[in-house]
């Protein structure tokens, strides 16, 4: 564990909590892409199946349970509890255009052709593009609530911090995982446009 990975995980946790609280407190998921949240739930489910097979640390297990719990709670709030406030017309990105190519790539490019490893690779690739429906929705509506921009900021920051974590681990531990690094770079690059607007605008954003 290093400072970049710890702050990265905490930034990720902050993003997840911010979104969940925003929907819960305002009792509305206006401006939120339910499809991105479904993809994130899928990312956590396919990545954290190792909860059933291996124990790494209390921190690791606790965070995985929290991530999965919050992801499904968010999907539940969007599609069940506050379904009336879900803006389905603007949340029109075709998820299959992401899941199918990512699934194929995970079968072609991976560290080991085993069930859990393929699923892990799928989740890494999927996470790098899972935010696209949300960014697409904001570009269609032309605006985003301030709280949503904070959610996106911390979500984008988390993987950027992981890039520093991988530099740290390569330098100090000789560890590197090309699949995670390349996907992490793609994921962070997708936020660059948003980061620029977030920093220059400060308040509500129009992509």
């Amino acid at each position: 564990m290093n400072i970049f990975r710890l702050t990265g995980d905490l930034s990720h946790l902050a993003a997840i909590i911010i979104l969940l609280l925003k929907i819960w407190k305002t009792r509305s998921c206006a401006g939120i892409s339910g499809k991105s949240q479904i993809l994130f739930a899928l990312v956590f489910t396919t990545r954290y199946l190792d909860l059933l097979t291996s124990f790494i640390s209390l921190y690791n297990t606790t965070m995985k349970v929290i991530y999965i719990g919050c992801a499904y709670a968010t999907v539940y709030l969007i599609y069940m509890k506050f379904k009336a406030t879900y803006d389905g017309n603007h949340d029109s990105f075709r998820m299959e255009f992401l899941v199918v190519p990512v699934g194929g790539l995970a079968c072609l490019v991976n560290h080991d052709f085993s069930f859990l490893e393929i699923l892990w690779t799928f989740s890494i690739y999927l996470e790098s593009v899972a935010i696209l429906p949300q960014l697409f929705m904001i570009s269609k509506t032309g605006e985003a609530e301030t709280i949503t921009t904070h959610y996106l900021f911390f979500l984008g920051l988390y993987r950027a911090l992981y890039l520093f974590n991988w530099i740290w681990r390569f330098y100090f531990e000789g560890f590197f995982d090309m699949i995670a690094i390349v996907a992490g770079m793609v994921q962070t690059i997708l936020y660059c446009d948003f980061f620029y607007l977030y920093v220059t605008k400060g308040q509500g954003i129009s992509l």
């Binding site: 990720h12 291996s54 991530y67 974590n165």
Partner: peptide, 10 residues
Amino acid sequence: NQDEVGHDEL
């Protein structure tokens, strides 16, 4: 390279 069994990152 990715040598230990499984992945230790979230």
